[in-house]
Design a protein around this nucleic acid. Structure first.
Lengths: 253, 253
DNA sequence: CGTAGCTTTGAGTGTTATCAACTCTCGTGG
DNA sequence: CCACGAGAGTTGATAACACTCAAAGCTACG
C-alpha cells in the first residue's frame, strides 16, 4: 500500500499544530477551555500528520505514545480475535479522539487504520497527563471525553445485544448523520468511507446482510444508495426503525 | 421490596469509610497510591452503605453525585431502550467501580441494582475530581480505571458482535472465574448472583438459550451446575470454547 | 480497457428466538 | 413440619432471522 511515488508529496507530515487556529477547536479536546488554558494547552508540542488510505495509525499491542485527534478523513479501530475474526470497535470522524483505551496498560488494545486520506493530530500522552495536572479545565475535559467514550460503547452494547439487523443499520446511519451535521456538513447526504465489510464487522452482521438492508431501505424509500453515497430521505422513519418502531412506519410519540 | 421490619437492622448505613483499613485497597481506586497520597485520599469523605437485594444504587437519568466502589455483594447495571428492551451493560463485583459513565454529562446513563446484599462505598465526585487535581497518582489512577472500563466494553463488543452463544457463555464464566480468583476466592467454584434472565440480557441471548447452554456444558463435562452454583471442571476446554476453539476439545497452542 | 476488489443478488441452512408447558426451589404461613 | 404459591429454571416444538456459499454485476483505478 505504501507508494513510493507519492511519498514526497506527503512530506507535509510533522508540522506543528496549534489548536487556536483549528476550526475543530470547539468539537475536540480543547472544548470549554478558557483563553489562558487554551494557551497552556498549545504549549504542548502536538504534531500533525497525514495518513494515506490503508495506513495504520497504530497497531494492536503498540506502546502508548500519543492520543490522536482526527482533523480530516476517517479512521476505523479494529480488535482481533485469536482465530482471526475481526470486530470494528469504532469509526472516528473529524473532531473525535482516538487511543484513550491504551491508557489502561500503556499499550493499544486495538489497531487504527485510515479509511481515506486522513489528517491526525498527535498529542503526546505523558505531557498531556502532566499538563492536565496543572490545568483543571483540561483534566475535566479529559475525564469527560473518556466517560463519553464509555457511554458510546455502552450504547453500542445495547445495539449488538438487543437490536435486529435492521435496527442496527438504521441507528448507524443516524449516528453518521448526526456526526456529519455536527461538523457543519449536510447531515442528510454523505459518503461512507468504509466498505460493507467494515460496516458488517462494526454492526456484528455479515457484509451480505448489510448490502441487502441498503437495498431494502432504498426500496422502502427510506434512503437512496449509490455505492457508498448515501442520501437519507426520511430521518423520521429511520429513527422509528432504530428505536424498534413498528416496521418503519413513523410513530408519533 | 423495601421491608419495614428489617429496616433498622440496616442502619449500619452511612458509616465513614477509610481505604487504609479496607482489604480491597489494592484492587480498587487507591491501587498504586503512595502512603502520602493514600492519606490525602482518605481525607475525602467517603460513605459506606448497604443495599438490599433489588435496591437501586442509582437510576437512569439521576444526577451524578458520587462514584461507587463495591465492597461486598454484586451489582448489575442496565440500559433501557425506548420500547422496554433491556441490556445489562455490566456486573460489578467487590473491588470494582461504578458510575464513571456519568461523568460525561453529569447524569447516569444507566441504572444500577444490587443483586444481593451489597456494601458500597460512595466517593463524592466533585471532591474526587478536585483532589485528583492535587494528587498526581490519583489523577493517573482515575484515568487508568476509565480506560480499563473502555477496554472491557470493547471486549464485550467483540463478544456480542462476533461470538456464538456458546462462546459468549464460556467467556463470561471465565471472566467470573478470574474476578473471583482476584478476590482471593476459589476461581473454580462460585455462586452466580444473577438470574438466567440477567445473564441473557448481558450476553445478548434469550434466557432459554442460557439455560440450555448450562445443561449442554454440564453434559459435556465442562462444568457442574446446580441452580446458581457453578463448578468449573475444565477451564482449558472452556477457554478453548471461548476463543472459538474446535468444539470444546482442548487445543494445544 | 482490463482486472481486482467491492457490491449485489440468490438459494439453502443453521443458530437462536419465541411460545408453551412443566418442574424445581425456596420462602411463607398455616 | 408440611403445604402452598410464586418466581426461577428447564425442556420441547416451531419458526424466523441472519449466515454461508456461490455467482454475477459493478466501479474504479492503473
Amino acid at each position: 500500500m505504501p507508494d513510493k511515488r507519492t511519498a514526497k508529496v506527503i512530506s507535509i507530515t510533522n508540522t506543528k499544530a496549534e489548536c487556536r487556529d483549528c476550526t475543530l477547536r470547539e468539537l475536540c479536546l480543547p472544548l470549554g477551555l478558557s483563553e489562558t488554558e487554551l494557551n497552556a494547552f498549545d504549549r504542548l508540542k502536538k504534531r500533525q500528520r497525514m495518513l494515506r488510505k490503508g495506513e495504520l495509525l497504530y497497531r494492536y499491542g503498540d506502546p502508548l505514545k500519543s492520543l490522536y485527534a482526527i482533523r480530516s478523513g476517517a479512521v476505523k479501530t479494529t480488535g482481533l480475535m485469536e482465530d482471526g475474526r475481526i470486530q470494528v470497535t469504532g469509526f472516528c470522524l473529524p473532531g473525535e479522539m482516538l487511543g484513550i483505551d491504551a491508557i489502561n496498560d500503556d499499550r493499544h488494545p486495538c489497531s487504527a487504520e485510515a479509511l481515506e486520506i486522513t489528517e491526525v493530530c498527535d498529542i503526546p500522552y505523558l505531557a498531556l497527563e502532566a499538563l492536565a495536572q496543572e490545568v483543571p479545565g483540561l483534566q475535566h475535559q479529559l475525564l469527560r471525553i473518556m466517560s463519553q467514550e464509555i457511554v458510546r460503547d455502552e450504547q453500542m452494547l445495547m445495539m449488538l445485544g438487543r437490536m435486529s439487523a435492521e435496527e442496527r443499520l438504521a441507528s448507524c446511519l443516524i449516528s453518521f448523520s448526526r456526526r456529519h451535521a455536527r461538523l457543519g456538513r449536510n447531515g442528510a447526504e454523505f459518503k461512507l468511507s468504509m466498505s460493507r465489510q467494515d460496516l458488517g464487522d462494526y454492526l456484528g452482521l455479515a457484509l451480505e446482510t448489510v448490502s441487502r438492508l441498503f437495498t431494502r431501505f432504498q426500496d422502502e424509500g427510506l434512503i437512496s444508495v449509490r455505492g457508498r453515497h448515501i442520501l437519507l430521505r426520511s430521518l423520521d422513519r429511520l429513527q422509528a426503525l432504530a428505536s424498534g418502531g413498528a416496521g418503519g412506519r413513523s410513530v408519533h410519540a
